[in-house]
Design a protein around this nucleic acid. Structure first.
Lengths: 159, 159
DNA sequence: CGCCGTTGGTTCACACGTCAACCAGCCTTA
DNA sequence: TAAGGCTGGTTGACGTGTGAACCAACGGCG
């Protein structure tokens, strides 16, 4: 490998901007969600997906694939959410190994109260303050980067 | 409050792009750092800052302010890094309360090996695949959003 | 049918972040 | 100089993420 190619001024500005924004943004959204709705970001994602299914129930492995979570994490998180009365877990009738997660009324109330709040937060912090061109750029950048990351991960799956 | 203003197609694409990129990117960079250098992202930040000081030592509270970390977190993290031989902690001679963190030779070796790797990862994943205009947009977006967040936090500090 | 690899989930040990309580040393000020 | 607030730092309880070990049920194949 040759000598390192450090970032130039423009590149460093963009990179620092991205990283700093990312940290602050995550902290802001999480804090809002936590203090106004009593939900963590993770809770929100789970409830949001659950509330979008026709009958408010999913197989955990489907949820896991959708969220991109490891199964251990999902299992533990669902356990905590169950203890708090946000979801229930029952044995799946058609596959005796597995479970089926269902949104409780309380869970549904919470997510339905949280969702508009959350969108408002997103607007307040980001979306409403960017130009159409910037929104476009953001989407394009996101897609480019994710494509790169997917390509880089390619050579990692199979030995 | 009125009815929620959901995101339209363009806004949702930008938002999802940003969120997904953020998650994947953090995971990628952390994994690279972890597997190639044996460092977590947090380790890297600490070591990087430490290695930039003239004599490789800092007061923890300075480090904490720079990184934006709570002091409890910093204290515990430094404890773990000390156990791993990356830094040492001694009593500060001029302020008997406090400590002074110093980079060990091993810590310096690690960060000096990790830094070029990390920059290469950043290039590989992001910087080298964006246009100059996109880099500019990213920096501008980051600044806009951080300014918004700072303004929103304004009304939170004093009761 | 019975074996065996795969799949869905749980659990454990550990690393990490947050928050609040706590302590010792500093600094002002009466 | 003693009192009291502030500051730098540690600790502990708790919630959360990661990785591996583990278990039971499914499903294909001899």
């Amino acid at each position: 490998m040759g000598e390192p190619r450090w970032l130039d001024e423009r590149e460093a500005r963009a990179w620092r901007g991205l990283m700093a924004m990312q940290v602050d943004l995550a902290e802001f959204l999480d804090r809002r969600l936590r203090t106004r709705c009593g939900l963590s970001g993770a809770d929100y994602e789970v409830l949001a997906h659950l509330s979008e299914t026709p009958d408010g129930c999913v197989r955990p492995f489907v949820l896991g694939r959708y969220l991109g979570w490891e199964k251990g994490r999902l299992s533990q998180h669902l356990g905590r959410m169950e203890r708090r009365g946000l979801v229930t877990r029952d044995r799946c009738p058609t596959d005796q190994r597995g479970a089926i997660v269902t949104l409780t009324p309380r869970g549904r109330d919470l997510i339905e109260a949280a969702a508009p709040q959350h969108v408002a937060d997103v607007r307040e912090a980001v979306v409403d303050h960017l130009t159409a061109a910037e929104l476009e750029a953001l989407a394009a950048i996101g897609e480019t980067v994710r494509a790169r990351l997917a390509a880089l991960d390619e050579g990692r799956a199979e030995p």
